[in-house]
Design a protein around this nucleic acid. Structure first.
Lengths: 226, 226
DNA sequence: CTGGATCCCTCACGATACTG
DNA sequence: CAGTATCGTGAGGGATCCAG
């Protein structure tokens, strides 16, 4: 259970020793959405072996990042949740997600979309400035992943599951990414049928304004010093 | 050279696939300080095998994070530097370093201090608000690591090497951490001889104000719901 | 059914030596 | 200086099994 160290007395290196192991930060990403049981985590992390998940949870617990809590009687179960210290990683996860989204191409054949990754994605790409004075709500469906978004004057709440009285319900596939990174406009998406809408269709423009994936910066060509 | 994936179509997962491998983020940390040659990187990453460093650099280059550049003639050599996209990780590295520093205990027996990790550490712990209107400069020596800091009204520049006309020169061991996390006051440090000073000794108080490691948050005891 | 523990196999990593 | 080559080890992957 010994975390391999980097041999450096350095806060950054220490951080990597604790959360830099494979899968660790994905566990944290999912726990940032909310407390979860072992099985929920296992479902949300496609391909992680149970022994690895056990190891990671134990390491994170020993490092004071995750707390293991036994639920009360009706449904006696064990949930894992972030400690205060673990929850401080939220900005890091958001920032890394925003950075990584810029290089998102098309989904690879074997890649899936999980509910927690989508919730994180919308928190990540949210543009608070564009939400000033906006009060509305959305429901999104991508395959069998369903989530809802409530916008409340510069703040949002993103959660799992449907929202019956959402002002606009959006059903989309990969087109959702094309909207967020401005490869496709709201009008084009509607005309092409890439997204299906129910409710106040004009709100799709608002939706697009609220979430954005920034473009990859231009890598200046090599300064081939002669 | 295939990076193992996580099987999720998610910006955050994609980020981890590219920079989540062992050693990758430490390479980035050192390159954030400035372009470096292979040998410099190797020296700054104690224990990394050369083939692993080669692999990491190649992966980072293919991902558009690092650029390999051949220097001009006088000293024909190859340097590695961050692309614009790679440099965008600065805030992430700073944030993770700040987070990890909170759990820094005493140095382990085999841990070393490198120049780039120290430069990053001071950038990480810098408190811009405390530097308003301050104009001064420091030189720090910890063992054979020497760096300098110039403070210029809310901004700093941290660099490697000595600074002849620094207003205060500080020589210290692990006491430097005790100062940053407020385990020790400037007065105590001077009286106990934990730090050696040359120059305007009163500036040690200013120095302590400028850099800070925040405390670990209190983990609230289990809410043992009955 | 949840919440893991145990097994085996593979490949990435680590140490060392060597080359253009 | 800037890497390649070789080889051993141990963490990760995958399946199965077990206790409450």
């Amino acid at each position: 259970m010994k975390a391999r160290g980097y041999g450096q007395y350095c806060g950054f290196a220490r951080a990597l020793e604790v959360i830099g192991e494979r899968w660790s930060m994905l566990v944290i990403r999912d726990l940032l959405v909310g407390p979860k049981r072992f099985t929920d985590l296992h479902r949300g992390l496609p391909g992680i072996p149970t022994n690895i998940l056990t190891s990671r949870l134990k390491e994170l617990e020993e490092a004071g990042i995750v707390r293991r809590r036994a639920l009360a009687r009706p449904e006696r179960a064990i949930v894992y949740e972030l400690t205060e210290y673990g929850a401080e990683l939220e900005d890091i996860v958001i920032g890394l997600g925003r950075w990584g989204a810029k290089q998102l191409g098309d989904p690879r054949p074997d890649e899936v979309v999980t509910i927690d990754s989508m919730i994180t994605a919308f928190r990540t790409t949210f543009q608070p400035n564009a939400a000033k004075g906006i009060h509305t709500s959305f429901e999104l469906r991508m395959g069998d992943v369903v989530l809802h978004i409530k916008v409340d004057d510069g703040r949002i709440e993103v959660g799992a599951g449907p929202l019956a009285d959402a002002q606009l319900k959006i059903e989309a596939g990969p087109a959702i990414k094309a909207l967020l990174n401005r490869e496709m406009t709201a009008v084009e998406a509607i005309k092409s049928g890439a997204v299906g809408l129910t409710g106040n269709k004009k709100l799709l423009g608002t939706f697009v304004d609220l979430f954005k994936i920034d473009p990859m910066p231009i890598t200046k060509s090599d300064a081939r010093a002669g």
